[in-house]
């Protein structure tokens, strides 16, 4: 993941307490890699987030939690078509797996 430096800077600036990450990745595998990066740390162990467990709550924009919180018209306009084309179930499953791990990190911290 190339933009780890920017994410780390944003975390340094805003702190982890009130921060949520929302992803727009196109499939479960890529969602998993991104979710892992912002929770446990960079799985490739090479970027600025290698070994850095931010433990941030992470969601994919198509997950039901986000959809329910969003304005239905905006959701439809911006991502309605993607809800049809992407495998929302598999993506949600993968992202929620890391969200749970993030909670463990937070509890431990």
């Amino acid at each position: 993941m190339e933009d780890q430096g920017i994410i780390k800077d944003a975390v340094d600036k805003h702190g982890t307490e009130n921060l949520i990450v929302v992803l727009g990745t196109p499939d479960a595998e890529s969602a998993g890699i991104f979710a892992e990066t912002v929770t446990i740390g960079d799985p490739a162990f090479s970027g600025p987030l290698a070994g850095v467990s931010l433990g941030l709550p992470v969601y994919h924009v198509l997950e039901s939690e986000v959809k329910e919180a969003a304005d239905p018209d905006v959701f439809e306009e911006e991502v309605g078509m993607m809800e049809i084309s992407l495998d929302v179930e598999a993506i949600s499953k993968e992202v929620s797996r890391f969200r749970e791990k993030a909670e463990e990190i937070e509890d431990a911290g």
């Binding site: 990745t25 196109p26 499939d27 890529s30 998993g32 078509m81 993607m82 084309s85």
Partner: peptide, 15 residues
């Protein structure tokens, strides 16, 4: 982790 780009594109056209 960059997905199957053409597959996703065809699904978007179809969607």
């Amino acid at each position: 982790g960059s997905g199957n780009v053409p597959h996703n594109n065809y699904r978007m056209i179809g969607s």
